[in-house]
Design a binder for these strands. Structure first.
Ligand SMILES: [Mn+2]
Ligand SMILES: [Mn+2]
Ligand SMILES: [Mn+2]
Ligand SMILES: [Mn+2]
Lengths: 217, 217
DNA sequence: TAACAAATTTAGATATATCTAAATTTTATT
DNA sequence: AATAAAATTTAGATATATCTAAATTTGTTA
Protein backbone atom coordinates (compact mmCIF):
# COMPACT_ATOMS: atom_id res chain seq x y z
CA UNK A 1 0.00 0.00 0.00
CA UNK A 2 1.04 3.57 -0.69
CA UNK A 3 2.15 5.93 2.03
CA UNK A 4 0.55 9.35 2.11
CA UNK A 5 3.79 10.92 1.02
CA UNK A 6 4.19 8.54 -1.92
CA UNK A 7 0.79 9.57 -3.19
CA UNK A 8 1.59 13.27 -2.99
CA UNK A 9 4.79 12.68 -4.93
CA UNK A 10 3.00 10.82 -7.70
CA UNK A 11 0.48 13.61 -7.95
CA UNK A 12 3.22 16.22 -8.06
CA UNK A 13 5.05 14.32 -10.80
CA UNK A 14 1.84 14.04 -12.78
CA UNK A 15 1.10 17.75 -12.55
CA UNK A 16 4.61 18.85 -13.42
CA UNK A 17 4.75 16.46 -16.36
CA UNK A 18 1.48 17.91 -17.67
CA UNK A 19 2.81 21.46 -17.74
CA UNK A 20 6.16 20.64 -19.32
CA UNK A 21 7.56 18.15 -21.78
CA UNK A 22 10.15 15.45 -21.22
CA UNK A 23 11.25 13.92 -17.94
CA UNK A 24 10.41 15.53 -14.61
CA UNK A 25 13.42 17.02 -12.82
CA UNK A 26 14.34 16.50 -9.21
CA UNK A 27 14.27 20.20 -8.31
CA UNK A 28 10.86 20.82 -9.83
CA UNK A 29 9.38 18.21 -7.53
CA UNK A 30 11.40 19.46 -4.58
CA UNK A 31 9.84 22.89 -5.07
CA UNK A 32 6.32 21.54 -5.50
CA UNK A 33 6.47 19.29 -2.44
CA UNK A 34 8.58 21.54 -0.27
CA UNK A 35 11.34 19.01 0.31
CA UNK A 36 15.06 18.96 -0.30
CA UNK A 37 16.34 17.55 -3.60
CA UNK A 38 18.12 14.73 -1.77
CA UNK A 39 14.82 13.59 -0.29
CA UNK A 40 13.27 13.69 -3.73
CA UNK A 41 16.03 11.47 -5.07
CA UNK A 42 15.30 8.94 -2.33
CA UNK A 43 11.62 8.95 -3.24
CA UNK A 44 12.40 8.60 -6.95
CA UNK A 45 14.30 5.42 -6.14
CA UNK A 46 11.47 4.12 -4.03
CA UNK A 47 8.88 4.84 -6.71
CA UNK A 48 11.14 3.27 -9.30
CA UNK A 49 11.40 0.09 -7.21
CA UNK A 50 7.61 -0.06 -7.24
CA UNK A 51 7.56 0.47 -11.02
CA UNK A 52 5.52 3.64 -10.67
CA UNK A 53 8.13 5.77 -12.41
CA UNK A 54 10.94 5.23 -14.87
CA UNK A 55 14.03 6.75 -13.32
CA UNK A 56 17.44 7.32 -14.77
CA UNK A 57 20.10 8.85 -12.58
CA UNK A 58 20.55 12.56 -13.25
CA UNK A 59 17.81 12.42 -15.89
CA UNK A 60 14.66 12.77 -13.80
CA UNK A 61 11.56 10.58 -13.83
CA UNK A 62 8.53 9.86 -15.95
CA UNK A 63 5.42 8.04 -14.75
CA UNK A 64 4.81 4.49 -15.90
CA UNK A 65 1.30 3.47 -16.94
CA UNK A 66 0.77 2.19 -13.43
CA UNK A 67 2.11 5.46 -12.04
CA UNK A 68 -0.27 7.52 -14.15
CA UNK A 69 -3.18 5.38 -13.02
CA UNK A 70 -2.24 5.78 -9.38
CA UNK A 71 -1.86 9.55 -9.78
CA UNK A 72 -5.23 9.82 -11.53
CA UNK A 73 -6.92 7.84 -8.78
CA UNK A 74 -5.68 10.40 -6.24
CA UNK A 75 -6.65 13.32 -8.48
CA UNK A 76 -10.08 11.77 -8.97
CA UNK A 77 -10.61 11.64 -5.23
CA UNK A 78 -9.20 15.14 -4.71
CA UNK A 79 -11.56 16.70 -7.22
CA UNK A 80 -14.61 14.72 -6.15
CA UNK A 81 -14.09 15.81 -2.56
CA UNK A 82 -13.59 19.44 -3.63
CA UNK A 83 -16.88 19.24 -5.50
CA UNK A 84 -18.63 17.79 -2.48
CA UNK A 85 -17.29 20.46 -0.15
CA UNK A 86 -18.53 23.25 -2.41
CA UNK A 87 -21.85 21.75 -3.47
CA UNK A 88 -23.02 20.37 -0.13
CA UNK A 89 -20.91 21.72 2.71
CA UNK A 90 -20.93 25.47 2.02
CA UNK A 91 -17.23 25.71 1.29
CA UNK A 92 -16.05 28.45 -1.02
CA UNK A 93 -13.82 27.42 -3.93
CA UNK A 94 -10.80 28.98 -2.29
CA UNK A 95 -11.20 26.90 0.91
CA UNK A 96 -11.37 23.39 -0.43
CA UNK A 97 -7.84 22.61 -1.48
CA UNK A 98 -6.25 22.05 1.92
CA UNK A 99 -9.01 19.72 3.09
CA UNK A 100 -9.09 17.80 -0.19
CA UNK A 101 -5.34 17.37 0.18
CA UNK A 102 -6.15 15.16 3.17
CA UNK A 103 -9.33 13.52 1.93
CA UNK A 104 -7.69 12.36 -1.30
CA UNK A 105 -5.73 9.79 0.71
CA UNK A 106 -8.73 7.94 2.14
CA UNK A 107 -8.62 4.37 0.92
CA UNK A 108 -12.00 2.99 -0.11
CA UNK A 109 -13.09 2.36 -3.65
CA UNK A 110 -16.67 2.10 -2.55
CA UNK A 111 -16.46 5.49 -0.88
CA UNK A 112 -15.06 7.14 -4.00
CA UNK A 113 -17.58 5.58 -6.35
CA UNK A 114 -20.54 6.26 -4.10
CA UNK A 115 -19.42 9.85 -3.62
CA UNK A 116 -19.29 10.20 -7.39
CA UNK A 117 -22.80 8.80 -7.71
CA UNK A 118 -24.08 11.03 -4.90
CA UNK A 119 -22.68 14.07 -6.74
CA UNK A 120 -24.32 12.80 -9.93
CA UNK A 121 -21.12 12.07 -11.83
CA UNK A 122 -19.61 15.54 -12.05
CA UNK A 123 -17.17 16.08 -14.89
CA UNK A 124 -15.37 19.11 -13.48
CA UNK A 125 -14.36 20.33 -10.05
CA UNK A 126 -15.05 23.79 -8.60
CA UNK A 127 -11.95 25.17 -10.31
CA UNK A 128 -12.97 23.84 -13.70
CA UNK A 129 -10.49 20.98 -13.64
CA UNK A 130 -11.70 17.71 -15.16
CA UNK A 131 -12.57 14.81 -12.83
CA UNK A 132 -11.36 11.39 -13.98
CA UNK A 133 -14.28 8.96 -14.08
CA UNK A 134 -14.22 5.42 -12.73
CA UNK A 135 -12.21 4.29 -15.76
CA UNK A 136 -9.88 7.25 -15.09
CA UNK A 137 -10.94 8.96 -18.29
CA UNK A 138 -11.22 12.76 -18.26
CA UNK A 139 -13.38 14.91 -20.48
CA UNK A 140 -11.28 17.87 -21.55
CA UNK A 141 -12.57 20.63 -23.74
CA UNK A 142 -10.70 23.16 -25.81
CA UNK A 143 -9.84 26.05 -23.60
CA UNK A 144 -7.52 29.00 -24.01
CA UNK A 145 -6.25 31.66 -21.69
CA UNK A 146 -8.23 34.86 -21.55
CA UNK A 147 -5.28 36.84 -22.90
CA UNK A 148 -5.33 34.68 -26.01
CA UNK A 149 -9.00 35.39 -26.70
CA UNK A 150 -9.36 37.67 -29.76
CA UNK A 151 -10.84 41.10 -29.07
CA UNK A 152 -14.64 41.15 -29.14
CA UNK A 153 -14.91 37.39 -29.39
CA UNK A 154 -17.32 35.94 -26.81
CA UNK A 155 -16.14 33.31 -24.37
CA UNK A 156 -17.10 31.67 -21.10
CA UNK A 157 -14.88 31.20 -18.07
CA UNK A 158 -14.27 27.46 -17.69
CA UNK A 159 -11.38 27.33 -15.27
CA UNK A 160 -8.45 28.94 -13.53
CA UNK A 161 -4.76 28.24 -13.84
CA UNK A 162 -3.74 29.62 -10.46
CA UNK A 163 -5.66 27.96 -7.63
CA UNK A 164 -4.40 30.16 -4.81
CA UNK A 165 -6.84 31.58 -2.31
CA UNK A 166 -5.59 35.04 -3.14
CA UNK A 167 -6.43 34.78 -6.80
CA UNK A 168 -9.75 33.01 -6.29
CA UNK A 169 -10.91 35.63 -3.84
CA UNK A 170 -9.86 38.35 -6.27
CA UNK A 171 -12.14 36.74 -8.84
CA UNK A 172 -14.95 36.52 -6.29
CA UNK A 173 -14.68 40.25 -5.69
CA UNK A 174 -14.86 40.89 -9.45
CA UNK A 175 -17.76 38.45 -9.67
CA UNK A 176 -15.93 36.22 -12.07
CA UNK A 177 -16.50 32.50 -11.67
CA UNK A 178 -16.91 29.31 -13.67
CA UNK A 179 -19.60 29.98 -16.26
CA UNK A 180 -19.23 33.76 -16.34
CA UNK A 181 -19.39 35.11 -19.93
CA UNK A 182 -16.18 36.97 -20.75
CA UNK A 183 -15.20 39.18 -23.62
CA UNK A 184 -12.13 41.31 -24.33
CA UNK A 185 -13.32 44.80 -25.29
CA UNK A 186 -9.98 46.45 -25.73
CA UNK A 187 -6.36 45.53 -25.33
CA UNK A 188 -4.10 48.34 -24.15
CA UNK A 189 -0.78 47.72 -25.86
CA UNK A 190 1.15 50.15 -23.69
CA UNK A 191 0.82 48.15 -20.45
CA UNK A 192 -0.85 44.98 -21.75
CA UNK A 193 -3.90 45.65 -19.64
CA UNK A 194 -7.32 44.50 -20.83
CA UNK A 195 -10.71 46.09 -20.81
CA UNK A 196 -13.17 43.24 -20.47
CA UNK A 197 -16.85 42.51 -20.22
CA UNK A 198 -17.51 40.09 -17.37
CA UNK A 199 -21.16 39.12 -17.13
CA UNK A 200 -22.98 42.44 -17.00
CA UNK A 201 -20.13 44.61 -15.80
CA UNK A 202 -17.12 45.95 -17.62
CA UNK A 203 -13.79 46.16 -15.88
CA UNK A 204 -10.07 46.48 -16.32
CA UNK A 205 -7.63 43.68 -15.54
CA UNK A 206 -3.88 43.22 -15.87
CA UNK A 207 -2.27 40.73 -18.20
CA UNK A 208 -1.27 38.63 -15.19
CA UNK A 209 -4.93 38.11 -14.31
CA UNK A 210 -5.82 37.29 -17.91
CA UNK A 211 -3.06 34.71 -18.05
CA UNK A 212 -4.69 32.73 -15.24
CA UNK A 213 -8.24 32.51 -16.52
CA UNK A 214 -9.29 29.79 -18.93
CA UNK A 215 -12.08 30.51 -21.38
CA UNK A 216 -13.95 28.45 -23.91
CA UNK A 217 -14.46 30.61 -27.01
CA UNK B 1 -0.51 18.68 16.15
CA UNK B 2 -1.56 15.10 16.81
CA UNK B 3 -0.22 12.22 14.80
CA UNK B 4 -2.74 9.72 13.50
CA UNK B 5 -1.47 7.15 15.93
CA UNK B 6 -1.76 9.51 18.90
CA UNK B 7 -5.41 10.05 18.08
CA UNK B 8 -6.14 6.34 17.89
CA UNK B 9 -4.49 5.84 21.27
CA UNK B 10 -6.57 8.57 22.90
CA UNK B 11 -9.70 7.05 21.47
CA UNK B 12 -8.71 3.59 22.69
CA UNK B 13 -8.00 4.93 26.18
CA UNK B 14 -11.36 6.67 26.20
CA UNK B 15 -13.25 3.55 25.20
CA UNK B 16 -11.46 1.28 27.64
CA UNK B 17 -11.95 3.75 30.47
CA UNK B 18 -15.68 3.86 29.70
CA UNK B 19 -16.08 0.12 30.06
CA UNK B 20 -14.05 -0.29 33.24
CA UNK B 21 -13.30 1.72 36.34
CA UNK B 22 -10.00 3.09 37.54
CA UNK B 23 -6.86 3.67 35.50
CA UNK B 24 -6.38 2.14 32.06
CA UNK B 25 -3.77 -0.60 31.96
CA UNK B 26 -0.98 -0.90 29.44
CA UNK B 27 -2.03 -4.34 28.21
CA UNK B 28 -5.64 -3.40 27.63
CA UNK B 29 -4.54 -0.70 25.21
CA UNK B 30 -1.97 -2.98 23.63
CA UNK B 31 -4.75 -5.43 22.84
CA UNK B 32 -7.12 -2.76 21.52
CA UNK B 33 -4.52 -1.13 19.28
CA UNK B 34 -2.69 -4.28 18.28
CA UNK B 35 0.70 -3.12 19.52
CA UNK B 36 3.24 -4.46 22.00
CA UNK B 37 3.06 -3.31 25.62
CA UNK B 38 6.44 -1.65 25.32
CA UNK B 39 5.17 0.53 22.49
CA UNK B 40 2.16 1.45 24.58
CA UNK B 41 4.42 2.53 27.42
CA UNK B 42 6.28 4.81 25.01
CA UNK B 43 3.04 6.37 23.87
CA UNK B 44 1.82 6.80 27.45
CA UNK B 45 4.92 8.86 28.13
CA UNK B 46 4.39 10.92 25.02
CA UNK B 47 0.75 11.60 25.84
CA UNK B 48 1.72 12.43 29.38
CA UNK B 49 4.25 15.00 28.13
CA UNK B 50 1.43 16.63 26.19
CA UNK B 51 -0.79 16.60 29.29
CA UNK B 52 -3.39 14.48 27.57
CA UNK B 53 -3.16 11.70 30.16
CA UNK B 54 -2.11 11.35 33.75
CA UNK B 55 0.45 8.58 33.89
CA UNK B 56 2.04 6.87 36.85
CA UNK B 57 4.60 4.20 36.17
CA UNK B 58 3.16 0.72 36.55
CA UNK B 59 -0.26 2.23 37.37
CA UNK B 60 -1.68 2.92 33.91
CA UNK B 61 -3.18 6.14 32.58
CA UNK B 62 -6.30 8.22 32.86
CA UNK B 63 -7.32 10.97 30.46
CA UNK B 64 -7.00 14.58 31.53
CA UNK B 65 -9.80 17.00 30.71
CA UNK B 66 -7.88 17.99 27.60
CA UNK B 67 -7.42 14.32 26.75
CA UNK B 68 -11.13 13.62 27.05
CA UNK B 69 -11.91 16.58 24.83
CA UNK B 70 -9.46 15.43 22.19
CA UNK B 71 -10.86 11.88 22.28
CA UNK B 72 -14.41 13.16 21.98
CA UNK B 73 -13.49 15.31 19.00
CA UNK B 74 -12.24 12.20 17.19
CA UNK B 75 -15.26 10.16 18.23
CA UNK B 76 -17.53 12.98 17.06
CA UNK B 77 -15.94 12.87 13.62
CA UNK B 78 -15.95 9.07 13.50
CA UNK B 79 -19.66 8.83 14.22
CA UNK B 80 -20.65 11.72 11.96
CA UNK B 81 -18.81 10.11 9.07
CA UNK B 82 -20.38 6.72 9.81
CA UNK B 83 -23.78 8.40 9.71
CA UNK B 84 -22.97 10.06 6.40
CA UNK B 85 -21.78 6.84 4.83
CA UNK B 86 -24.99 5.03 5.77
CA UNK B 87 -27.47 7.83 5.11
CA UNK B 88 -26.08 9.16 1.83
CA UNK B 89 -23.51 6.77 0.38
CA UNK B 90 -25.36 3.44 0.52
CA UNK B 91 -23.02 1.85 3.05
CA UNK B 92 -24.40 -0.86 5.29
CA UNK B 93 -23.80 -0.45 9.04
CA UNK B 94 -21.27 -3.24 9.02
CA UNK B 95 -19.10 -1.56 6.35
CA UNK B 96 -18.57 1.88 7.81
CA UNK B 97 -16.14 1.33 10.62
CA UNK B 98 -12.94 0.83 8.65
CA UNK B 99 -13.52 3.90 6.49
CA UNK B 100 -14.54 6.06 9.45
CA UNK B 101 -11.35 4.95 11.13
CA UNK B 102 -9.53 6.93 8.44
CA UNK B 103 -11.96 9.82 8.02
CA UNK B 104 -11.94 10.61 11.74
CA UNK B 105 -8.40 11.97 11.36
CA UNK B 106 -9.22 14.66 8.80
CA UNK B 107 -8.38 18.02 10.32
CA UNK B 108 -10.93 20.71 9.58
CA UNK B 109 -13.36 22.13 12.07
CA UNK B 110 -15.41 23.64 9.30
CA UNK B 111 -15.71 20.26 7.61
CA UNK B 112 -16.92 18.58 10.79
CA UNK B 113 -19.44 21.25 11.64
CA UNK B 114 -20.78 21.53 8.11
CA UNK B 115 -21.09 17.76 7.88
CA UNK B 116 -23.08 17.82 11.09
CA UNK B 117 -25.36 20.51 9.69
CA UNK B 118 -25.72 18.65 6.40
CA UNK B 119 -26.81 15.54 8.32
CA UNK B 120 -29.23 17.71 10.32
CA UNK B 121 -27.51 17.35 13.68
CA UNK B 122 -27.84 13.61 14.24
CA UNK B 123 -27.67 12.49 17.86
CA UNK B 124 -26.73 8.86 17.26
CA UNK B 125 -24.65 6.94 14.74
CA UNK B 126 -25.77 3.88 12.75
CA UNK B 127 -24.86 1.61 15.66
CA UNK B 128 -26.87 3.60 18.14
CA UNK B 129 -23.85 5.25 19.71
CA UNK B 130 -24.29 8.88 20.75
CA UNK B 131 -22.61 11.61 18.67
CA UNK B 132 -20.97 14.41 20.67
CA UNK B 133 -22.28 17.77 19.51
CA UNK B 134 -20.15 20.83 18.82
CA UNK B 135 -19.77 21.41 22.54
CA UNK B 136 -18.79 17.73 22.86
CA UNK B 137 -21.94 16.94 24.80
CA UNK B 138 -23.61 13.57 24.19
CA UNK B 139 -27.25 12.71 24.68
CA UNK B 140 -27.37 9.30 26.36
CA UNK B 141 -30.53 7.51 27.23
CA UNK B 142 -31.17 4.72 29.66
CA UNK B 143 -30.49 1.49 27.92
CA UNK B 144 -30.07 -2.06 29.12
CA UNK B 145 -28.89 -5.26 27.51
CA UNK B 146 -31.57 -7.44 26.00
CA UNK B 147 -30.77 -10.25 28.43
CA UNK B 148 -31.59 -7.89 31.30
CA UNK B 149 -35.02 -7.06 29.91
CA UNK B 150 -37.74 -8.67 32.07
CA UNK B 151 -39.84 -11.33 30.33
CA UNK B 152 -42.80 -9.90 28.40
CA UNK B 153 -41.67 -6.31 28.90
CA UNK B 154 -41.63 -4.35 25.64
CA UNK B 155 -38.46 -2.67 24.48
CA UNK B 156 -36.87 -1.15 21.39
CA UNK B 157 -33.43 -1.92 20.02
CA UNK B 158 -31.34 1.23 20.45
CA UNK B 159 -27.83 -0.05 19.92
CA UNK B 160 -25.32 -2.87 19.78
CA UNK B 161 -22.40 -3.60 22.04
CA UNK B 162 -20.40 -5.65 19.54
CA UNK B 163 -19.74 -3.71 16.34
CA UNK B 164 -18.18 -6.53 14.35
CA UNK B 165 -19.28 -7.17 10.79
CA UNK B 166 -20.10 -10.72 11.75
CA UNK B 167 -22.53 -9.74 14.45
CA UNK B 168 -24.10 -6.88 12.50
CA UNK B 169 -24.74 -9.12 9.52
CA UNK B 170 -26.25 -11.74 11.82
CA UNK B 171 -28.69 -9.08 12.99
CA UNK B 172 -29.44 -8.08 9.39
CA UNK B 173 -30.36 -11.67 8.59
CA UNK B 174 -32.68 -11.78 11.61
CA UNK B 175 -34.09 -8.39 10.57
CA UNK B 176 -33.06 -6.78 13.82
CA UNK B 177 -31.85 -3.19 13.63
CA UNK B 178 -31.96 0.12 15.46
CA UNK B 179 -35.63 0.82 16.17
CA UNK B 180 -36.82 -2.77 16.00
CA UNK B 181 -39.32 -3.55 18.81
CA UNK B 182 -38.03 -6.40 20.96
CA UNK B 183 -39.61 -8.48 23.67
CA UNK B 184 -38.44 -11.53 25.59
CA UNK B 185 -41.17 -14.18 25.41
CA UNK B 186 -39.47 -16.93 27.31
CA UNK B 187 -36.15 -17.50 28.96
CA UNK B 188 -34.88 -21.09 28.81
CA UNK B 189 -32.98 -21.62 32.05
CA UNK B 190 -31.32 -24.83 30.93
CA UNK B 191 -29.15 -23.22 28.24
CA UNK B 192 -29.89 -19.53 28.85
CA UNK B 193 -31.38 -19.22 25.39
CA UNK B 194 -34.17 -16.72 24.77
CA UNK B 195 -37.37 -16.86 22.81
CA UNK B 196 -37.99 -13.35 21.57
CA UNK B 197 -40.38 -11.29 19.54
CA UNK B 198 -38.49 -9.12 17.05
CA UNK B 199 -40.78 -6.87 15.06
CA UNK B 200 -43.36 -9.21 13.61
CA UNK B 201 -41.42 -12.44 13.84
CA UNK B 202 -40.56 -14.63 16.80
CA UNK B 203 -37.21 -16.31 17.03
CA UNK B 204 -34.71 -17.96 19.30
CA UNK B 205 -31.38 -16.44 20.21
CA UNK B 206 -28.53 -17.44 22.49
CA UNK B 207 -27.54 -15.51 25.58
CA UNK B 208 -24.42 -14.32 23.79
CA UNK B 209 -26.55 -12.52 21.22
CA UNK B 210 -28.79 -11.02 23.90
CA UNK B 211 -25.76 -9.71 25.74
CA UNK B 212 -24.80 -7.60 22.74
CA UNK B 213 -28.07 -5.86 22.00
CA UNK B 214 -29.07 -2.69 23.80
CA UNK B 215 -32.74 -1.99 24.35
CA UNK B 216 -34.69 0.90 25.77
CA UNK B 217 -37.51 -0.53 27.90
C1' DT C 1 5.87 -13.46 54.19
C1' DA C 2 8.53 -15.81 50.73
C1' DA C 3 8.32 -17.27 46.19
C1' DC C 4 6.31 -17.28 41.93
C1' DA C 5 3.63 -15.30 38.10
C1' DA C 6 2.00 -11.50 35.61
C1' DA C 7 2.36 -6.91 34.18
C1' DT C 8 5.13 -3.20 33.03
C1' DT C 9 9.20 -0.73 31.89
C1' DT C 10 13.88 -0.19 30.04
C1' DA C 11 17.57 -0.92 26.86
C1' DG C 12 18.91 -1.70 22.62
C1' DA C 13 17.87 -3.21 17.65
C1' DT C 14 15.59 -2.29 13.24
C1' DA C 15 13.16 0.37 9.92
C1' DT C 16 11.71 4.66 7.83
C1' DA C 17 11.86 9.51 6.61
C1' DT C 18 14.14 13.57 6.05
C1' DC C 19 17.87 16.62 6.50
C1' DT C 20 22.98 18.75 5.70
C1' DA C 21 27.20 18.65 3.51
C1' DA C 22 30.28 16.59 0.32
C1' DA C 23 30.96 14.28 -4.06
C1' DT C 24 29.59 13.53 -8.68
C1' DT C 25 27.47 14.43 -13.05
C1' DT C 26 25.38 17.41 -16.34
C1' DT C 27 24.78 21.83 -18.60
C1' DA C 28 26.22 26.34 -19.87
C1' DT C 29 29.84 29.64 -20.93
C1' DT C 30 34.06 31.29 -22.45
C1' DA D 1 37.48 21.88 -25.41
C1' DA D 2 38.29 23.63 -20.91
C1' DT D 3 36.23 25.63 -17.12
C1' DA D 4 32.56 27.27 -14.23
C1' DA D 5 27.93 26.87 -12.62
C1' DA D 6 23.93 24.26 -11.70
C1' DA D 7 21.68 20.08 -10.79
C1' DT D 8 21.73 15.76 -8.78
C1' DT D 9 23.25 12.02 -5.98
C1' DT D 10 25.64 9.91 -2.06
C1' DA D 11 27.08 9.53 2.64
C1' DG D 12 26.21 10.20 7.01
C1' DA D 13 23.40 12.57 10.88
C1' DT D 14 19.02 13.14 13.31
C1' DA D 15 14.40 12.04 14.52
C1' DT D 16 10.52 8.95 15.04
C1' DA D 17 8.11 4.62 15.59
C1' DT D 18 7.94 0.08 16.76
C1' DC D 19 9.81 -4.22 18.00
C1' DT D 20 12.45 -8.08 21.06
C1' DA D 21 14.56 -9.41 25.12
C1' DA D 22 16.03 -8.36 29.64
C1' DA D 23 15.16 -6.03 34.00
C1' DT D 24 12.01 -4.29 37.28
C1' DT D 25 7.80 -3.81 39.77
C1' DT D 26 3.40 -5.41 41.30
C1' DG D 27 0.04 -8.92 42.46
C1' DT D 28 -1.05 -13.68 43.91
C1' DT D 29 -0.54 -17.89 46.29
C1' DA D 30 1.40 -21.32 49.16
MN1 LIG E 1 -2.32 15.09 -0.14
MN1 LIG F 1 -9.40 21.76 -7.85
MN1 LIG G 1 -8.34 5.90 13.25
MN1 LIG H 1 -20.30 3.44 15.31
Amino acid sequence: MQTLSTEDYLKAIYHVSQSSSGAVATTSIAKQIGAKPSSVTDMFKKLSDQNLVKYQKYQGVSLTNEGVKTALRIIRKHRLWESFLVSHLNFNWDEVHQVAEQLEHIQSEKLTNELERFLDYPTHDPHGDPIPNRALFMKTYNKILLNELPVNKEGVCVGVKDNSSNFLRYLDRRQIGIGTPLQVLHREDFDDSLHIQAGKSTLMITIKIAENIYVKP
